Amino acid sequence: MKTMVNKQLLFDHFENKTMPLQKRLIEEWLQKEKNQEQFYQWLVEWEMQSALYQPEIELPLQRYVQHMETSSHPSIEDQGPVETSVPGRHTFQLPTLHRWLVAASLALLLLFSAWIGRESILFRTYRTAFGETRTLKLDDGSHVVLNANSSLQIPRFGFGTRTREVLLQGEAFFAIKHTTDNQKFLVKTEKGFNVTVHGTEFTVYTRSQGAKVALEKGKVAINYTVGSVTKEVTLKPGDLVILDRHNQPKLKRQVDAQKYSAWKEHRFVFDDMTLRQFGDMLNETYGLQVDIPSDKLAQRTLVGSFQADDADELLKTIADIFNLKIERQKNHVILLNNVN
């Protein structure tokens, strides 16, 4: 009975454990286009057993080509050149293209194409639109709630054995499951700071206006960079860290950390937020461009908790509180004092 090409056979092949006949079988298997994508997927999976994020694709490629070059193929090595005659022209010789070279070339082309788009192959990115929230369950059992206009990048083939890493843009609430081997969970950002945890609940905000981390349960460490120096601050439940645009942290103790994740229930909690800052929040959450011509009006502050399912409902609530007039054209909103 003919041996079938499966994952284990290819894993043995990548580890230089296959026999010449098995290598030839793999070559023939690769001739079918539908098998090439499976080949690469198993190649990446094999690499990720020893590397969490950035598999060394060149190394298995070199090994694969070396396997093909050193393998013996008696039925195709002795075929020799083929004579080809074209009417009206001289006869010339065209050497036979060995199937092992075709297979290696296909693998090279496949890997080269994948290298260009390797991020989309190695990672999966979840995104939310303006006004949308989304709940995700990760492979380790952890839960993440993405706020509007946010994205979370996770490994496509699962976490490795050393650490669990994700990349956040925007805002998200994390409920991280503790592992028996105390595997760290790392939330990376593009704002020059990362959050390291084991098992805890916290909210991370990272947008153009700055960044903040609020801890509800457990313990987290925030590593941030100022200039060329990396520093660390450790949070306890009820702690809030606010990082400005220069990554300078401000630590607040004993805050109500849950109000920073209230958006999960479409609840907005304002603590002396100016209307100018409220306009920035509408831009980040709903994609609205908010103009407040009056500086005096823009400096008025919001305090309290408000329930709203969308931007229109939230705007109406705030307009009623401040007696505002709202002028809106599509995504452009102007807030004015209501003189009536």
Rank of each mutant, 00 (worst) to 15 (best):
T285Y: 03
R267H: 05
F270E: 06
F278Q: 10
F270Y: 11
Q258M: 11
A257I: 13
Q277E: 15
D280A: 15
M281Y: 13
F268S: 02
R276H: 05
V255G: 08
F268M: 03
V255R: 09
G279D: 01
R253G: 05
R267N: 10
V269K: 04
V255Q: 12
Y260R: 03
K259L: 13
K259V: 14
K264E: 11
R276M: 02
D256F: 02
E284W: 10
L282Q: 02
D271K: 06
W263A: 09
K264N: 04
Y260K: 09
M273R: 01
M273S: 03
E265A: 12
T285E: 08
R267F: 08
R267W: 01
D272P: 00
M281Q: 02
D280L: 05
Q254G: 10
K259Q: 15
M281P: 00
M273C: 01
E284Y: 12
K252N: 10
M281R: 09
R253E: 15
F270V: 04
K252S: 14
M273E: 10
Y260W: 12
E284M: 04
Y260P: 00
D272W: 00
S261N: 02
N283R: 12
A262S: 15
H266Y: 14
T274H: 05
D272N: 14
D256M: 05
Q277V: 11
G279L: 02
T274M: 06
E265N: 14
R267Q: 13
R267I: 11
L275E: 10
M281C: 00
A262K: 03
Q277A: 13
